[in-house]
Structure formats: C-alpha cells, structure tokens
Computed example of a mutant assay.
Amino acid sequence: MSTIGQDVADVDLTELVAGTRARLLTALHASASPRAWAAHDHEDHELIWGVRGVVTVRTGDEHRTVPPSAGLWIPAGVAHEVAASAGARFWTTHVARPVAPGLRGGARAVAVTPLLREVLLYLHNRLMPQDVREQAETLALALLDEAEVPPVLLPVPDDPRALRIARALVADPADDRTLAQWCAHVGSSVRHMSRVFGRETGMTFARWRVHARVRAATTLLPQGLPVAAVARRVGYRSPSAFVHAFGEVTGCTPGAYLRAVTVRPVAVSPWADDDEAWPIADTERVIGDSGGR
C-alpha cells in the first residue's frame, strides 16, 4: 500500500517517463493518521483528486480544500504545502512538464468528471501497450478543464498570533468566540488584531471567519450531509443564515454548488488495488523540511 509520507526517493518520475514514454503517472495515497508536508515544488505538474477525508493545500497566502468531487491542479514549480486529515485517502496524477493541457497560471480547481476519473484510474496500470497508453493519456489531457465552481480561497495571515487564531478556526469553524475573546486568548489587542487581519488577508476578522466557515462547508456538502447539519457544524444557528453566507462567498446556493461538483460514485477499478498502489515519484525540490509525497 502506498502510504502518505512514505520515503520513495529512489523512484524518479523523470526516469519513469523516459523509460515508459508515459506522460501521466497516477498514484494512490492513504494514511491512518494526520500528515503534513512543508513547502516544496515538483519538476512536473500535479493533479490532486479523488479525495476522501480532508486534504488542504496552501500556495502562497491561499489555502484550498480539495473537494471530493473535483481536483486541484498544481503547475510545475509552484511551491505548496499539503495537509491530510486522519484517514484521508487521495490520488495524485503527475503530468510531464512538456505537456501543456491548456491550464495556465497558478494552482486552480479542476473538474474531475466521471469519464476523466475512469481514465486516470485506468492509467494507474503500467502494464498496457504503449499505443493504448498514449491514447488514454491524450484523452485525459483533453478532458482536463477548470471547475465551473471556483474554489473558496482563504488568505492566511503571517502574524504569529493571528495565525494561531486562523488555524484554530480552520480546525473548528463553529467556534463562536468573539475577536475580543480570541485576542485575550493569544495576548493581543482587538485594535492590533483588526489591523493585522485587514492588512494580511484583505478582510475584516468577521468576513474572514465567514470565508473559513463556507470553505469548511464545501467539504461537508459533498459528503451527503443535510444543509441544516452542515450549517450547525460550521457555526450557523439557522440554515437560512448559512445559505445567505454561502451565497455571498460563492455566488450560488449550497444546492447549486453541490449539483455543480457532484459526480456519480465510481466502482473500484481493477487498477486501483490498494495493495498494488503505484508509488509516486519523488521529484520534489524541497523548500522546507518535508517528507516524500
């Protein structure tokens, strides 16, 4: 089984691509305990998809939670941090750098349709004729497209005390302590912390908390929870207040969001055997002290 944090430094994506003429390599990752990786980048493009549990990615000052029914495209050379919750399971597909699937700019949400998901799972199998692999890769690259619903971005403050507050609210968005209570907790003044949030996130503390709650909701809605239950879990006392906040941040209702990102369940592929997971190539250029992923 390919395990999050497994040391696979002896596997080199560039050599695998050169040896098999493969342009896309897919790997499965799973772990029973929470894991995190410091800032690093890859020599190849990376698509994180098929998430079960919670997987968050930080690029620059933006945090993204990878939705279960979509994916996150991380271009080659873009530094990113990754964190996975206990029991999380996800797939990564690495795309050789010379390949340009039409996605430009920085990290962005990608629509993982049922067809794309099946093709990516099919490419998990290394034992196929080269002409068949090339056709499957061409189809997968043609299907890569930006998600219709943009991800909820959450700028993160650099100030150590503000960062403590931000991390606590990301971990528990239903925590309803006021800014004054948080400031007493971290040893700061309300005036100072208000300036910090405005300067470093571009939002007031209250607005930032709304974004944190809505971002958390985008990971809960695809799990099939009722809107009322999601509202309570992210800190809203009434579904109507939650729906209003969700619309302000995303521009759509929770129901519309769910319809845009939901795909049908996919049967386990014969190439998705947990015990035969293809280890991911470790072509990271480490910026911080990170484990292989």
Rank of each mutant, 00 (worst) to 15 (best):
I4G: 14
S31F: 10
V99F: 05
M203Y: 15
V55P: 11
V132K: 07
H29F: 10
G292I: 12
R177E: 06
G224V: 14
H29E: 12
R285K: 14
A27K: 13
A277V: 06
L103G: 02
R35S: 10
Q181S: 13
V51K: 01
L258D: 15
A70I: 06
A171G: 08
A140K: 09
P68A: 13
R215Y: 08
V249W: 03
W271F: 10
A171Q: 12
T3A: 09
I48T: 11
V51R: 01
S31A: 12
L123G: 04
V112A: 09
A86H: 13
L123T: 03
S85W: 06
A281I: 07
T14C: 03
M203R: 15
A30H: 02
A18Y: 09
V261W: 05
E148Q: 08
V51G: 00
A147V: 01
E284T: 04
H80D: 02
D7P: 08
A70N: 05
T250F: 04
R232K: 03
F242G: 05
H94E: 13
V149R: 12
E200I: 12
L221I: 01
P114I: 15
A96H: 06
R213N: 03
S2W: 07
L169C: 05
D172C: 06
R104H: 14
C183P: 07
A38F: 08
P98K: 12
T262K: 06
D7Y: 15
G50K: 05
I4F: 04
A174G: 08
D41A: 09
E148T: 15
P265S: 11
T138N: 15
R293C: 03
L47E: 03
T250H: 01
V156P: 00
D44T: 15
R21V: 15
R191H: 14
L220F: 00
R177M: 04
V243C: 09
P129V: 14
P151W: 03
A272C: 14
H40R: 10
R164E: 14
W49S: 07
F197Q: 05
T178F: 08
V286G: 07
C252K: 01
R264E: 07
E148V: 12
V249T: 00
H42Q: 03
